[in-house]
Design a protein around this nucleic acid. Structure first.
Lengths: 148, 148
DNA sequence: TCCATATTGATGCATTTGCATTTATATGAA
DNA sequence: TTCATATAAATGCAAATGCATCAATATGGA
């Protein structure tokens, strides 16, 4: 609520965050699509589920993990289920809730996506920064969403 | 096409680019909305037009500047025009083209948006990084979309 | 000049996102 | 126990995005 103009360096970092993200993002999505694979968000969701307990995740957990809006996650889950990549089952602990688990074919598609995704990450980031630069970048970006 | 897994630091930087962007973006959009102001993209477009020649910009120029898809820009322009913030006129040099200029009320709304936007940038970036960190971040992000 | 090709911008249609609200269950205080 | 409130998840409807394509003009050879 004060609104002194932020320092130039800050505004520049913000603006470039936008641009860099948009550029990298569209590289990745374009390559996935070109390979006839599902979009990035599907990968992320499947990876989270694959990493999770065999018991799976509650939708709201996945939602927080992915920083998705609740209604968007609900629909992403619809699509993943319709595609047969995940299964929904009623939660035992909580009558309101569900539990999501990855299916065999979910694992398979995630595995098939990875090489394409990996190449895209290389194109978008790896080929442009040294490892130590990437580390620095990752650290600084991490600060932008650290809770405190 | 090779697909060796990229170094960890690279994957981490990519993942954090996503998260940081999503977080910062939603902070900014939420604050603009809460203040009853138009979305971020409107600001960007208006700023570009305000910075441009008094003669304005061609849609395709704005499109490149903003890294927007052509059809998205076309519709953004529709909305801005409908809101009275920009004016379209036929291009003199090119019979296919148009020329976009910002209107008085376009300037006004952009000016009204700035304090809210500035605060949001501070919240999302400025309050989390020192100026020199912001500079480093900006430099590294710039590399992610440098043409070469 | 004429034509094949490229560029500018718009648009119909499908998908996705955003918003507001709803349904159902859980929780905690009186 | 009972009720007010909070949380989990879904959904109807509107707005935005993505995709493919189109119409109109430009451009650069043959």
């Amino acid at each position: 609520m004060n609104s002194p103009t932020p320092p130039d360096a800050v505004v520049r970092a913000w603006a470039r965050l936008e641009r860099a993200h948009r550029t990298a993002q569209s590289t990745v999505e374009a390559r996935l699509k070109k390979a006839g694979l599902p979009p990035l968000a599907w990968y992320d969701a499947l990876l989270e589920l694959e990493r999770a307990d065999p018991a799976g995740l509650r939708p709201f957990e996945l939602q927080k993990e992915m920083l998705f809006a609740q209604y968007n996650l609900s629909r992403l889950v619809d699509r993943l289920e319709a595609a047969g990549y995940i299964a929904r089952s009623a939660s035992e602990e909580d009558g309101r809730g569900q539990r999501l688990t990855i299916t065999k074919s979910g694992r398979a598609i995630r595995r098939r996506m990875w090489p394409v995704y990996a190449d895209a990450i290389t194109a978008a980031v790896g080929s442009r920064l040294s490892e130590s630069e990437a580390t620095t970048l990752g650290d600084l970006l991490g600060r932008l969403y650290a809770s405190a």
